[in-house]
């Protein structure tokens, strides 16, 4: 217990290894991955979409913004980018508001998981709205004239 590192294989190292293994068994019994979560991870394979272009998260107010003085619960601002296309999204208590840039018409859906999609209302200039706000992981799927873009999955 003097803090020196001993040679591997010594009696203490052996006891460490046994205790670690005992902990591993304890975790498997007392705190396993919940079955429904395991299933949702299996189902997530359906989200592997070769045809869609990925719009990566480039700004998240939760991480990148300075706290606003006096704003108790500021809306979450997100920006996604796929090449020259950007998608700005604001998540409020009422739902989503967003803008596709450069302005263009698109069919836009809010995804909530494998098999969960609901359409948002979009105008010809790429502005879109929809409520209520997402409650778990979500992504947006945008079908422009030329391509399909999906935003990175994110927790609302």
């Amino acid at each position: 217990m003097n803090g020196d590192e001993e040679m591997p294989g010594g009696p203490d190292a052996l006891a460490d290894g046994l205790l670690e293994e005992e902990l591993r068994q304890a975790a498997a019994v007392l705190d396993p991955v919940p079955a429904d979560l395991l299933q949702s991870a299996l189902d997530a394979f359906a989200l592997h979409d070769l045809d869609a272009r990925l719009a990566e998260l480039t700004f998240d107010s939760l991480v990148d913004a300075l706290p606003v003085r006096g704003a108790a619960d500021p809306p979450r601002m997100l920006t996604f980018r796929a090449g020259e296309v950007t998608v700005d999204v604001e998540v409020t208590g009422d739902g989503l508001i967003g803008q596709l840039m450069p302005p263009q018409s698109a069919r836009i859906e809010l995804l909530g998981g494998p098999g969960h999609a609901r359409p948002l209302t979009a105008d010809p200039l790429g502005r879109f709205t929809g409520g209520p706000p997402p409650t778990g992981p979500f992504a947006l799927r945008l079908r422009t004239g030329a391509e399909v873009i999906v935003t990175e999955w994110l927790r609302a």
């Binding site: 979560l37 949702s40 991870a41 997530a44 394979f45 359906a46 989200l47 592997h48 979409d49 990925l54 998981g113 778990g136 992981p137 992504a139 999906v150 990175e152 999955w153 994110l154 927790r155």
Partner: peptide, 9 residues
Amino acid sequence: QTVWFRFAQ
């Protein structure tokens, strides 16, 4: 879930 959805993506 978010981690696995993103991994699939």
